[in-house]
Design a protein around this nucleic acid. Structure first.
Lengths: 128, 128
DNA sequence: TCCAAAAGTTACCAAATGGTAACTACATTA
DNA sequence: TAATGTAGTTACCATTTGGTAACTTTTGGA
């Protein structure tokens, strides 16, 4: 008989998908691109706080993974457009579901963050 | 009029949920607990490769967030049982969806990993 | 008397991660 | 002649992250 579902071995689907989505910006870059092709500057403005370095680094990763297509227009000043590939579109599916959940469950997120805040305060009082 | 959906500001639902699930083991610990209450040792065996340190650290975090309940039985040798709280059960919902997707789309994961492997090889040939 | 079992803590360390700021390229425009 | 706009790179650094291994505690059993 098979081993129970709750054993999460190296290389199980669960670990594999985390391996892909573990960059700080990866999933959000994909999510933004799900709204349509975008230029670098648009992406940058869609993710306030991202640095140029992280943006290009993340874009290179998803490009290497075959999730995103990079199209260079040879003009001056430069123009580069990014868009999801068919594979990228498939990966955005579970992300959108996750984000939809987050939008619909803001109260749960609030509750969790309140809990964390309270426990952090309690811990710092200990240290006095 | 509202700004476009694809602007992902600090504190938007998308960023908030990543903030919670960003520990290496957090989401998998929650996922394992969705199968029912478990003792420390069971959790440890359900996540091959996790260290004692990371297991307790992760458990404390989800406990502080109010996602997991920790019940100590005062016996020797010690017995401690972890289980999802109602809030925890809500958070497991999108995780399960994500993991179901991953199970159903192993081919897409393969394709992505192949792409990454190939691009890594190409990059290392460059360096020779 | 000494070890086992279960859960947990601690000190220490190496690697990964991501941020800042300065720099490049180049045609157009003022 | 000098500045502008767009995409990108690079060196450098601080922080975070997570792993290892040794240690603790308590009681029952060999």
């Amino acid at each position: 008989m098979a081993e129970p579902d709750f054993i999460l071995r190296e290389n199980c689907p669960q670990r594999r998908i985390h391996y892909i989505l573990n960059g700080k910006w990866t999933s959000m870059v994909l999510s933004v691109l799900s709204y349509g092709p975008m230029r670098t500057g648009q992406l940058e403005r869609a993710l306030p706080g991202i640095s140029k370095k992280m943006l290009t680094q993340t874009l290179r990763e998803v490009e290497n993974g075959g999730l995103v297509h990079r199209e260079v227009f040879h003009v001056v000043p430069p123009k580069v457009e990014y868009s999801l590939t068919p594979l990228g579109i498939r990966f955005v599916e579970p992300l959108s579901a996750l984000y939809d959940w987050a939008k619909d469950n803001a109260a749960a997120l609030d509750e969790l963050e309140d809990n964390l805040r309270r426990s952090a305060e309690a811990a710092s009082k200990q240290g006095e």
